[in-house]
Structures are given as structure tokens and as C-alpha cells.
Design a protein around this nucleic acid. Structure first.
Lengths: 216, 216
DNA sequence: CCTTGTGAAAACTTTCACAGCT
DNA sequence: AGCTGTGAAAGTTTTCACAAGG
């Protein structure tokens, strides 16, 4: 299955920016712009238009010189690149405060991402309904996942149970984990793990905001 | 105010890893290890020991050849680098689901970071107490911030109000913002903004977990 | 004259290899 | 013998400069 015009290595950072472009494009489309330039797309992002064009070029020549990009077509392209041209379903594991917040987070739907099931191992949480989704026992995970055929999971458990449950997710056929637990998950590399470490981000902020006061 | 042995540019990625090292070191200290090697520190992180040594070397020679690093001293050093050798106070703006989750998040305290005040502009939320903190009206922000002298803020507002309130934060003397709103904040560069874009992260996950199935 | 697309240069980051202490 | 510290090499990403097309 050939991916594209050229089979080059695509920088990780490019992928992260692609989501920003998609969000920007959807906003421009709402403003009824059918043709947009790289400058318009990146105007409110912290990205230069050259960077945008370079990023997009990994996937082919999608614009017209002297003109710009067709909004619809570029959106479709990006959605296909991410695999969200059809709704992509996700499960959530860990229905604590953070998990509950993510269950209700509206920002996922804008990208065609929908949380369709949630699990916890705390009896106090099982059975509750949050954001329209009933929290199920983790022991039922394998059965439910195989029924609904999901391959992405958001992990919002405490650090101490994250590794064990991540291994279970693997066993359930999960292929990608967005991990909010502040631990490095040790898993075979046929699962892709992406960490969101909020405390570490806040620490980086303390450092950088401190160094602003310095000569510079 | 001279920072260090050598005044080299420090990679951004180094700073992000430094927080992971600090977390690891604190764990090792709990296990009563007074001397640790770079291998021990990075054993459960996704970082090589060379990377660790290189990262640390930007701040001087903190270890002993043939021996390792004194746990306590390295922890102190890192805490000073981040400015969390004393408790660092933070405010939170936006007491919705995500804000409430962060107010209760235990992972910040481990790094000596404490949320000491929270604000919202929704009358329904003002006055409520979450995680021991009373939600105040955003209009009182300037007065309260100048009283408690905080310079870091976590912003968990919806995208549409984030820019306006961020400008207010600037006016209140805030120097760093951890922004969870899915917009690029346009602020002068004497404020440091760090974005956590959860929907974009999830999108990156869909891309990378998809590409795992490919030849590779 | 406008905007895209892209090699080539520059900048940045990680990995390597090994010298230097204990 | 074991572990740190670090220049130099390799690898990666961004920026530049400009050719190509509408």
C-alpha cells in the first residue's frame, strides 16, 4: 500500500502541526473561504507559511501556484492522513477527575474523534454515567473492545496502575495509547504510546518563564 | 546574575527531560539510594544514560567519575534550575471540568508546585469550593494576584475567551501561561506560553498508530 | 505580481567514542 | 573496572532563496 507521491521520512513535529492546520482550515471554511493561502492558514498559528508548505509537501503538491489551496480538498486530505475521514472511536481508561473531564471535552469531536466507552477498576465509579457514557469494569474491557473494534485508548489512571492496565490494553488489541499517567509505559513497539505529562509541562514553564527575566 | 559554569544554549527538549529526571531521582531517594548512576536514573525513562549526562552537563559537572551522582545534591540542583527549591505558587483560570481536574491533580505537589487561587467568569462557578480552593470572579484577579504575588497561570478556558483573558493575565503581571485552550495565544514575548493541546495530541496518536501497520 | 514547491544551507539535537577520575 | 563528561560525528528539522506556474 503506497502512501504517497514521495516516500520520505516525515518529521514528528510535522504531524503535530498538521492537526493545527486542520483546525485552522475548518475555521476558515466556516468563514466561507473556498480557496486559502498558506499565509491565511498559518496566520493565527505560531508557524511560518514556509513551514506549512514544507509540511504539506511531504504529502504531495496539494495547492496551485499563484492561487492557493482549495479548502475542502486540503481538509479531506488531512483527514485522510490522520485516518479521521470517518469517525474514529476511542476508549478511555480511568474515570477519575481527569478522565471525566476528557469524556466531556468537546475538542475531540471537531476532529471526528469520539470516546465511545470508558472503564475503571474502582467499584465506586463503575456504573456511573459520565458525559453520556457508562463506566464499565476493566474486567469487561476485552469483551467490549473486541465487540466495538476500537484501537485507540486514552489512559487516565494513577501512575501505579498504569503499566499493568496498559499491558491489558495491549492484550485487548489496542494499537495506540495517549498516556496521561506520569510514568513511562514499557510496552512492545507495536503499540504507539504518546505521553502527556502535565506536571512536566508546568515544570518547563517554570524554567522558561524564569529565564525570561534574564539577559536575553 | 551568572547562571552556570558555561553559558551555552540549552535545548528545549533538555528542559522537558529534566523534570523526568527529577521525578526519577525523588523515587530513587525514597528507596534510600544516596548515590545513583546515570543508568539508574534513566532506567525507567525512555532516555539513554548518555542523553542524561549530556543534559546534565549543561549545568556543570554534578557527578563523580567512577561513582555517580549524589541523589540529594542532584535533586537540589534540579529544583533550583526549575525554581522550585521553594514552593512555587500558581493560579488557575477556568474552573470547568478540566480546570477542576487540575485543581485536584496530585502530580503538581511532587514538584513543589501549588495552585493557590482559581478564577472563572461564570457566575454559576464563582463561590464554589473545589479541591479546597474557592473560585473567585475574574474581575478580582488583579487584586488577588498582586496580593499573593504569583507569576504563573494555568489557563483552562474555552478557546473563544482564552485570548482576552490571557491579555488580562499579562496585565496582572503573569509571566508564564500553561495554555490548555486550543488556540495560539497572541501575546508579547515577555510572557512565556506553553501549549498543551490534547486534541492535537490525540490526532498525532491516530497518525502514528495507523502507520505502525505499514511496512516499517 | 501572486503564491506554491523544493533543493540547499543553516541550525539544532542526539549519538558516538573515548579521555579523565575514582 | 566503573562511571562521568564532552568534543566530534551523525542525524534531524527549520529556514532560506528562488525556480515554476497561474
Amino acid at each position: 500500500m503506497k502512501r504517497n507521491v514521495k516516500e520520505k521520512r516525515i518529521p514528528q513535529e510535522t504531524i503535530k502541526r498538521l492537526a493545527l492546520y486542520l483546525r485552522s482550515l475548518k475555521k476558515l471554511r466556516k468563514e466561507n473561504l473556498t480557496i486559502v493561502s498558506s499565509n491565511q492558514i498559518t496566520a493565527h498559528l505560531n508557524v511560518t507559511s514556509e513551514q506549512f508548505r514544507k509540511d504539506i509537501s511531504y504529502f504531495g503538491s496539494l495547492g496551485k501556484r499563484g492561487v492557493g489551496y482549495k479548502t475542502d480538498i486540503l481538509i479531506e486530505h488531512l483527514e485522510r492522513i490522520f485516518g479521521v475521514d470517518k469517525e474514529r472511536r476511542i476508549i478511555l481508561v480511568g474515570a477519575g477527575k481527569l478522565g471525566s473531564a476528557l469524556l466531556a471535552y468537546p475538542g475531540f469531536l471537531n476532529f471526528n474523534l469520539r470516546i465511545v466507552a470508558a472503564f475503571d477498576n474502582d467499584p465506586a465509579k463503575i456504573g456511573k454515567v459520565l458525559g453520556g457514557i457508562k463506566i464499565e469494569d476493566i474486567s469487561k474491557m476485552k469483551k467490549i473492545i473486541s465487540k466495538i473494534g476500537v484501537e485507540l485508548a486514552i489512559l487516565t489512571l494513577p501512575a501505579d496502575s498504569a503499566q499493568v492496565i496498559a499491558e491489558k490494553l495491549l492484550d485487548c488489541g489496542i494499537k495506540g495509547i495517549l498516556n496521561f499517567a506520569p510514568v513511562n509505559l514499557n510496552l512492545p513497539k507495536n503499540v504507539y504510546v504518546l505521553n502527556v505529562d502535565m506536571a512536566a509541562e508546568l515544570m518547563a514553564l517554570t524554567y522558561f518563564s524564569k529565564s525570561l527575566s534574564k539577559d536575553d
